[in-house]
């Protein structure tokens, strides 16, 4: 089972390498040391949260802002972890969940939920390995090479992370009007924070939280039960 998990994880690992490469570049260009970028990736294993996290640090935001922004941005993992808990088999509990819960990401979750009726702990463990290595190595390579690479290339790879975000939103919005509505509302509020001078005082971390909570609450009020259509 562990071998099957490792095999299923390899495509995710390759994808993570290129995306975390761009995270490494982004972190270094925001004034972080290469080992700081590496530690962030090793300890968090998440794209959106890390991106927001280094934004908060670079802007010298408060610890509360850091905690709240991480909580809101990663709240989706709580939902995934809920679904996983329903599908994990009898032996996948207690200490195993405590340890392997660290490895829940959007892609790992999606692949794990796709395999059979129950999820075995050995399979889930195997599944995490390649993505973790890819994420860590990609960050390291990006952070180290980012310093010596020509700016044309750094510039181009800097958009890769946004590319991944777009690749998650667009297919979901295409399939589901409610998701399209929520994403559009959130983007509109985000533009408001960005372009209207009155909102200058609000840090980007809190701006993301406010956008996400307002748009999702509106979505839940108008289209309850349509999030997974």
């Amino acid at each position: 089972m562990i071998k099957k998990g490792i095999r299923d994880g390899i495509p995710i690992g390759l994808g993570y390498f290129s995306v975390s490469f761009s995270f490494g570049i982004l972190a270094v260009s925001n004034g972080f040391e290469w080992w700081e970028a590496l530690l962030v990736s090793m300890a968090n294993l998440t794209s959106a949260g890390q991106y927001a996290g280094i934004t908060v640090m670079a802007a010298a935001g408060g610890l509360v802002e850091m905690a709240v922004s991480q909580f809101v941005i990663n709240l989706r993992y709580a939902l995934m972890s809920l679904s996983l808990s329903q599908k994990a088999d009898r032996k996948f509990r207690g200490i195993y969940r405590l340890i392997l819960g660290f490895g829940i990401t959007d892609e790992i979750f999606a692949v794990a939920m796709n395999t059979g009726k129950e999820i075995k702990r050995s399979y889930f463990f195997g599944l995490i390995i390649a993505p973790y290595i890819g994420w860590t190595l990609g960050t390291l390579t990006g952070a180290v090479c980012g310093n010596i690479m020509p700016s044309v290339i750094c510039d181009a790879l800097g958009i890769a992370l946004y590319g991944m975000f777009i690749a998650i939103i667009v297919p979901a919005a295409k399939k589901n009007r409610a998701v399209l509505f929520v994403a559009a509302v959130s983007a509109a509020i985000s533009c408001m924070f960005y372009y209207i001078p009155v909102f200058d005082k609000i840090s980007s971390g809190f701006a993301i939280i406010i956008c996400a909570v307002m748009a999702s609450a509106l979505g839940a009020a108008l289209f309850p039960g349509r999030e997974a259509d």
């Binding site: 959106a48 991106y51 927001a52 809101v72 941005i73 709240l75 989706r76 939902l79 959007d106 975000f165 998650i168 939103i169 979901a172 919005a173 409610a178 998701v179 929520v182 994403a183 559009a184 509302v185 959130s186 983007a187 509020i189 985000s190 701006a207 993301i208 956008c211 996400a212 909570v213 748009a215 999702s216 979505g219 839940a220 999030e227």
Partner: peptide, 10 residues
């Protein structure tokens, strides 16, 4: 809805 709203805002 949270993940899509977060990603769109970012």
């Amino acid at each position: 809805y949270i993940p899509y709203a977060v990603l769109a805002a970012m």
